[in-house]
Amino acid sequence: MKANQIILLVIGIVVVVAVGYMFTAIESPEDYIEKIEKERERQFKYIRFNAESPLTEEQKANFKTLTFYQINPEYKVKARLVPIENKKVREVPLTDGSKERYIEHSYAEFELGGKTNSLLLLQSVKEIDMRNFFLAFADETSGRETYGGGRYLNVRQDGKNSITIDFNLAYNPYCAYNPEFACPLPPKENLLTISIEAGEKNYSK
Rank of each mutant, 00 (worst) to 15 (best):
E30S: 15
E37Y: 03
P29L: 07
I84R: 02
E85R: 12
L9E: 08
K38L: 13
A18R: 04
Q43K: 15
E200T: 07
V125K: 09
K78Y: 08
Y75A: 00
S28G: 13
K99I: 05
K35Q: 13
V15F: 14
S118T: 09
S98W: 01
I6W: 13
Y75G: 06
A18I: 15
G113F: 01
E27D: 10
L55K: 00
R80E: 15
T95A: 04
R101I: 00
E109T: 10
A198I: 05
K88E: 10
G143C: 13
K99V: 11
G148P: 06
R48T: 08
L81R: 01
I36N: 01
N50I: 03
L120W: 02
A79C: 10
E52N: 13
L121K: 01
E127F: 02
L122M: 11
L185I: 06
D96M: 07
E41P: 08
D129P: 08
I128T: 15
A108C: 04
P54L: 00
G150L: 05
V89T: 14
S124G: 07
N190V: 04
E127K: 03
F44M: 07
D158S: 10
I71H: 01
R156Q: 12
V92S: 06
K205H: 12
Y69I: 06
S98T: 15
N117H: 08
R90W: 09
Y46K: 12
I128Y: 08
G150M: 08
S204G: 05
V77L: 04
D139I: 05
L121E: 00
E140G: 08
K99H: 15
R156I: 05
E91P: 11
M22E: 10
P184L: 05
I13G: 04
I71E: 01
T95E: 01
R144I: 15
S106M: 07
A51Q: 14
K205R: 14
E200A: 03
N4W: 14
G113Q: 00
E74G: 07
P187G: 03
L135E: 04
E127Q: 12
G12E: 10
N161F: 12
Q5C: 07
G149N: 11
P179M: 00
R131H: 09
H105N: 10
A51T: 13
T24R: 11
R40I: 13
C175V: 00
I165M: 09
T164D: 07
E127G: 04
A79H: 11
K78H: 11
N202Y: 04
C183W: 00
Y102A: 03
T141D: 03
F137A: 02
R156Y: 09
E100I: 14
E100G: 11
Q43R: 15
L119S: 04
S142K: 02
M22C: 07
A108P: 02
H105Q: 12
K76S: 10
Y21V: 12
R42C: 03
